[in-house]
């Protein structure tokens, strides 16, 4: 339970354009186009993914308090991370969000994982690309609040993965969009992302005053 304002954001399957290039990259393919026999299967995978996906996200804006020496507070207790501190330099506020493609996608990946791993692999790659594209949309909406820093997630650098729990709790993400955490700190649905986006302080106003 949090007293922070949490907003929800949903998107339709059409709203998120899936980067084919990124999906290829997740499959280990460097080419721009696929051989015929793969192209067909890839098309099937994208369309099955689109039928299954349900894009959901929840966001909360928070103040950042810096205590120096890598220590800071984003609203879920004092944490230590030099990398995050660096990332958020020059910011007083940040948006924390969680985004997911929902559990039907996990089911789809699992469904083929034993019987047709090629398809499972492709859908997995499509989903990985799609969740990042979904995050980009959310990110661009956040940047309307001001210039933003690159989004930063648990597990990057020295920002411990154990904070995943704090972030999901702060966002009430289980209840709001169905993201849970396994014992090994894996998010379920698997194609879920949490991130912190620092918002740079407007310097214009200060300059004007000066």
């Amino acid at each position: 339970m949090s007293s922070r304002a949490i907003t929800l954001r949903f998107a339709s399957s059409e709203e998120v354009e899936i980067s084919k290039k990124e999906a290829f990259r997740y499959m280990g393919i460097k080419a721009e186009t696929l051989p015929d026999e793969m192209e067909e299967l890839f098309g099937v995978c994208v369309s099955e993914f689109k039928k299954a996906v349900s894009y959901k996200a929840c966001l909360a804006e928070t103040e950042i308090r810096f205590f120096g020496n890598g220590r800071l507070d984003l609203g879920f207790g004092e944490i230590e991370s030099f990398h995050l501190e660096k990332n958020l330099q020059g910011c007083k506020r940040a948006v924390i969000f969680a985004a997911t493609t929902s559990i039907a996608v996990d089911r789809l990946i699992n469904r083929f994982s034993k019987l047709q791993p090629s398809k499972s692999l492709m859908i997995d790659a499509v989903a990985s690309a799609a969740v990042e594209d979904w995050c980009d949309i959310i990110n661009s909406e956040i940047s309307q609040k001001g210039e933003t820093k690159p989004r930063f997630s648990c597990g990057y650098g020295d920002f411990s993965l154990s904070h995943q729990k704090d972030i999901l709790e702060l966002l009430d993400a289980q209840r709001k969009i169905g993201i849970t955490l396994s014992e090994s700190l894996m998010m379920l649905p698997v194609k879920s992302v949490t991130a912190i986006v620092g918002i740079k302080e407007e310097e214009k106003d200060d300059k004007k005053k000066a």
Partner: peptide, 11 residues
């Protein structure tokens, strides 16, 4: 050949 192709052949 890429991994998905390898898998399709394996299947």
């Amino acid at each position: 050949m890429f991994l998905p192709q390898l898998l399709m052949s394996a299947e």
